[in-house]
Design a protein around this nucleic acid. Sequence first.
DNA 1: GTGGTCTAGACCACA
DNA 2: GTGGTCTAGACCACA
Lengths: 127, 127, 127, 127
Amino acid sequence: MIELDFRSRKPIYEQICEKVKELIAVGEWKSGDQLPAVRCLARELGINHNTIQKAFSALEREGVINSVAGKGSFVSAMASQTEVFKKQALEEIERVIEKNVVYSITCEDVKQLAEHVFAKEKHGRGA
Amino acid sequence: MIELDFRSRKPIYEQICEKVKELIAVGEWKSGDQLPAVRCLARELGINHNTIQKAFSALEREGVINSVAGKGSFVSAMASQTEVFKKQALEEIERVIEKNVVYSITCEDVKQLAEHVFAKEKHGRGA
Amino acid sequence: MIELDFRSRKPIYEQICEKVKELIAVGEWKSGDQLPAVRCLARELGINHNTIQKAFSALEREGVINSVAGKGSFVSAMASQTEVFKKQALEEIERVIEKNVVYSITCEDVKQLAEHVFAKEKHGRGA
Amino acid sequence: MIELDFRSRKPIYEQICEKVKELIAVGEWKSGDQLPAVRCLARELGINHNTIQKAFSALEREGVINSVAGKGSFVSAMASQTEVFKKQALEEIERVIEKNVVYSITCEDVKQLAEHVFAKEKHGRGA
DNA sequence: GTGGTCTAGACCACA
DNA sequence: GTGGTCTAGACCACA
C-alpha cells in the first residue's frame, strides 16, 4: 500500500506522512479507522520503527491521526480533513506558480498544463 | 542584487542558483556577461566562498554559466536559455499539480488559481 | 455517570480516578456507599476490568476508597475527605502558578483569571 | 544552566523544551542568540544528542527557535515571543483552576494563593 | 500488543 | 563543526 523511494532526497518519514494523507484523501482509510501498528508497518516497509514513530507523531501534530498508547493510531475524526488537504494542495500549487512566474510563463501556459494533467488523470482512472 | 534568507531551510547554495537564474531570466544578466568573482560575491553576501563555488559549479553543470579558470564565470551563450528555463518551470508546476491531484482539486481550481496569481503579478509590476 | 475520553492522552485509569473523586466531591457518592463492581463498571464503560482494577487500587492507596475482597469497594469514611481534596486541588494550582511565574504574569493576572473562571462557573450552574 | 530530573515522569525532551523557554523568558537568551550545539549540549547534560534534537525540533515547530543545518540553532526573532509565552502560561493556569473548581475551592482561595506565591517570589528574588 | 522514550552509533548535506 | 536522518535495540506505561 505504501511505497518508499529510498533514493529520494525527501526523508522517509516525510514520504510516509504524504502517503498516509493520500490514502485518507482517496478514502482508502476513513475517519476512525485504525492504522497499522507502528512496529508492524515498520516490518512491512523494511524500516526501523522509530522512523514510523516520527511520521505518526508529525501526523498527530497536524491533527491527521490520533495515537493512543496501548491502543493504537486512528484516522482523526476531523470532519473537514478533506477540505484542509485541498486547501494545502492549492497553496502548494500557488507557491510554485508564483516562484516560476519570473520565467516568462503565461497564465495560458499554466491553464493548458492543468488541462493536460487532468486529461491524463481521467484516462489513467478510466483505464 | 542577490538577497539570501539565512533562516530558510533551503540551502544557501541553492538560493544562489535560483537567484542567478532569475537575474538571467529577467534580462539583468545577458549571454556573455561576466558574473561577479566568487570571492568578491562571497564577501558581499557575507558567506564562505566555498558556498558560492558550489552554486557556480551546479550552474555550470546545468549549462547556465561557463567558468574559465583564471578568467571568471560567464553567462552561457545558450541561445535558448530562456526557453530552457521556461520548460523547467512548467515541468516543476506540472509535477506539483500531479502530486496534488489526489486531494480532490479540480482543473477549474487550478485555472482560477493561475488567473489569480497572474492578476496579482500584473498589479505588482504595474505599481 | 462516568464518561471517558478515549482520544485523550490521559490514561484511562487516571480518568477513572478523577471521575470517582469528582463524584465523591459533589456528594453523588457518600462515605460508606458501595462503588459499582469492577467487572460491572468495566462492562458499562466498555473497557478491560484490569483498567478499573488499576484505578481502584490507586484510589485505595490514596485512602479514597476501601476495597474488601469478596464484598466490594466502598467510599472511605474519612471525615475530612472533602478537605483533603480541596487541599490537593489548591496544591496543584499553586504548583502550576509557581511554574509559570517566570513568564511575566502578574498576581493581578491570576486574580482576574480566577474571577473569570468562577463567574463562568456560576453562570454554567445557574443555567 | 539546564537541570534535568531523570526521575520525573515528564520526558527529558519536554523538560528541555520548558527550560529553553524559561531561559528565553527571563532574558538569559535573547532573540538571535545562538543556542548551544545539539551534540555539545547533549554531552554537557549527559544525554543522547537525539533527545536534544527532538526537543529542538519541537521548539522550532513552535516558532521558538530556528535551526539551520550547518550553522546552528538560534532564538527566534518573534517579537511577541514573550506575549505568547504569557498567554500560554495563563491558559494553563486557567485550565487547572477549571479542573479543580469542583473541589469546593472558592475564588477567594485562589486569589489568596496567588498573593502567597507572588509574595514568596518577591522574597526569593530579593534574597 | 500498542505507542512513546531513550541510547549508541553511523552517515549525510551544508557551511 | 552543525543540524538532520536513520538504525538497532532496550525499556516503559498502558490496555
